[in-house]
């Protein structure tokens, strides 16, 4: 993509853009909606949905029929019918309310801190000239592969030494550390897509790096931040390992940890069905957030999606 293709859209043209988008939609309907393509899309969508749908149905079935008959039989006469009990039981067995709060408390800083740090680092890697830049970037990139398990004990000892054990700090800091390499890698790619001319122009105007970062680049990166934000959110929200190791006490345990404990210990195999409801309780928030953030994805990601 070259610089000339990027242009900036003022806010007051939103309305115009909407009309344009509607026209474009009507026009593209012709462009790609060949019957073959539509069929492929529908097949993919159905295939992707069936497994989850099966679990959704399962979560509304009585626990005792789950291991003995397929979920699709729920729609037949002998299928055992539907019930809300699984959700009730899942919610009360572990009293998931406080864990919901913990997950929330954990998630917000664990998204905000790594993304901010990654943006700053990515900026430095993309636009600040300093010695050892490439080496450092490759090193950060390669750190993605470090298995989290080898870091657990050293980090625990560090937090203990700092006196942070028992608080949310170890969880926040650990999520930050684990999220940074990928975040920097992705943000760096987004940063680099921004044409040199824009940055150069600002520099000629006498803006320092901090100013360029906040005034010029940040607005262009909103969709990228939203896109990465949702993935960092998913990783943190669904994480089991970091929460288990670093949350310190049951009082701070996040939602997936509580859900995992739902089925109790050995000899509680008959509570397996509770996990189906548990999985959907955990899933609800990410889905809402994805739907809410979709409008940020309407416009481009990599080039900052700005038009005018």
């Amino acid at each position: 993509m070259t610089a000339g293709e990027i242009f900036v859209e003022p806010v007051d043209r939103k309305e115009a853009r909407k009309n344009k988008a509607a026209m474009a939609a009507a026009e593209t309907a012709k462009r790609i909606s060949s019957p073959g393509a539509s069929i492929i899309a529908i097949i993919l969508a159905v295939l992707w949905t069936i497994p989850t749908f099966g679990l959704l149905v399962t979560s509304f079935r009585p626990g005792d029929v789950v291991p003995t008959s397929g979920w699709w039989t729920a729609f037949t006469a002998g299928g055992g019918g539907f019930t809300f009990n699984t959700y009730k039981e899942a919610w009360t067995t572990q009293a998931l309310g406080p864990n919901f709060l913990n997950s929330f408390v954990i998630t917000l800083p664990a998204i905000l801190i790594p993304i901010t740090l990654a943006l700053l680092a990515a900026y430095a890697f993309a636009w600040v000239d300093f010695r050892g830049r490439n080496f450092l970037f490759v090193a950060v990139f390669a750190l993605q592969i470090v298995p989290i398990q080898v870091t657990l004990l050293p980090l625990l000892k560090t937090y203990k030494w700092l006196g942070l054990d028992g608080s949310f700090w170890p969880v926040w800091l650990s999520h930050t550390i684990y999220g940074l390499p990928l975040a920097i890698f992705l943000m760096h790619n987004f940063m680099k897509e921004i044409p040199r001319e824009i940055v150069e122009a600002a520099r000629v105007d006498g803006a320092g790096h901090v100013k360029i970062f906040f005034k010029v680049l940040m607005p262009l990166l909103v969709p990228a931040i939203a896109a990465f934000g949702i993935f960092q959110f998913l990783w943190v929200w669904n994480d089991l390992l970091v929460g288990t190791v670093f949350s310190g006490s049951k009082n701070n345990a996040p939602l997936p940890l509580a859900v995992q404990q739902l089925i109790g210990n050995l000899g509680s195999g008959n509570r397996q069905y509770l996990l189906s409801a548990g999985a959907f309780i955990v899933m609800a928030v990410p889905l809402v957030i994805f739907l809410a953030l979709q409008r940020f994805f309407v416009r481009g990601l990599l080039a900052g999606g700005v038009k005018g």
Binding site: L152, L153, L156, K157, G248
Partner: peptide, 19 residues
């Protein structure tokens, strides 16, 4: 009281990290 299903791995970490 605190229970954790991943006790076997966690106890080693807790003991070794001084907690």
């Amino acid at each position: 009281y605190e229970g954790n299903k991943d006790f076997e791995n966690q106890i080693k970490l807790r003991v070794q990290s001084g907690s």
